[in-house]
């Protein structure tokens, strides 16, 4: 009732609209300035990496190619860890997600909670004993060892995402396929897997980002310079382990390391955002 009585009459309403328009312009300008500020560090590094006091140059990338064991070595090492982590995460999480979503068996909840508990652990707590354990397995100082640990760190997110995804596919779809003569496996593959492709992309994308950018795990598990992944090599470059610190080469290195992630993000933005929100909401 009070609301009705105090409802603004036509004239103040117009004034309010005008005020709103002005506020809209102000916030629009502010937002645009802030966006420029956020873009500044990356854009600046990209420009500086290909310029030299005025002219264009590829010198910085040339120097980057030759530092330490050579950029190709570090790119290869990062690629190996990333490919194994993505493939391994999917290979474990797709069947596990399906198992958790569609079956009941003894110990199911215990196993699920155990996998989620990985989220709680501070990484150094577990990396120090892993350094010793991987040594016993002969996997110390290997890229496979690093990838296995990355798969483990990704497991809670991957399994959780795949479980949710399979749960959202109506079971009747598979039953219909089975009635049509498909076996259980083929029904799963044909019907359900096709329906959860977006989640598979999200899980793969997150495994990619995590493995490509990880620093602490390879820092602790690798000690041979020629096995370093790109982030470790770049920090070594910064620390002057390969001679005088070359900031131009460092700029180029940051761009090389960020580029795949930025491109993938721009291409698959929707999957990335969806994954972040799902990941955030699990908390």
């Amino acid at each position: 009732m009070t609301a009705l009585l105090t409802r603004p009459t036509a004239a103040p309403g117009a004034a309010r609209r005008a005020r709103h328009r002005r506020a809209g312009v102000v916030s629009g300008v502010l937002a645009a300035l802030l966006a420029l500020l956020f873009a500044f560090p990356l854009v600046r590094a990209a420009i500086l990496s290909v310029t030299d006091g005025g002219g264009l140059t590829t010198d910085n990338y040339g120097k980057l190619a030759d530092f330490g064991a050579g950029l190709p070595t570090y790119l290869w090492n990062s690629a190996v860890v990333t490919v194994i982590t993505v493939a391994g995460s999917l290979a474990l999480a797709i069947p596990a997600g399906y198992g958790f979503a569609r079956y009941t068996f003894r110990g199911k909840n215990l196993i699920f909670v155990l996998i989620l508990a990985i989220l709680m652990i501070p990484h150094p707590t577990i990396l120090i004993p892993l350094y010793v354990l991987l040594g016993d397995l002969g996997l110390q100082n290997t890229l496979i060892g690093v990838a296995l640990v990355m798969i483990m760190f990704q497991l809670p997110f991957s399994v959780f995402m795949m479980r949710i995804a399979f749960s959202a596919v109506p079971e009747e779809l598979e039953e219909a396929a089975m009635l049509d003569g498909c076996s259980e496996t083929r029904a799963m593959l044909r019907v359900s897997l096709a329906a959860v492709v977006p989640s598979v992309v999200t899980v793969g994308l997150f495994a990619f980002f995590a493995a490509w950018n990880e620093f602490l795990t390879p820092l602790i598990l690798l000690n041979d310079g020629s096995r370093f992944t790109l982030p470790i090599a770049l920090v070594s470059l910064r620390s002057g382990d390969f001679g005088a610190v070359d900031l131009g080469a460092l700029q180029a290195g940051v761009i090389v390391s960020a580029l795949p992630c930025v491109v993938l993000f721009l291409l698959l933005q929707r999957h990335y955002v969806r994954g972040l929100l799902a990941g955030a909401l699990r908390g």
């Binding site: 198992g99 068996f105 199911k108 039953e175």
Partner: peptide
């Protein structure tokens, strides 16, 4: 429906690799 009975063992086997890594 004959096929729609899901055997617990199959579920356990599907989850087993992830559980072993954990």
């Amino acid at each position: 429906r004959r096929h729609s009975i899901r055997r617990p063992r199959t579920g356990f086997l599907l989850v087993l690799p992830a559980a072993l890594v954990a």
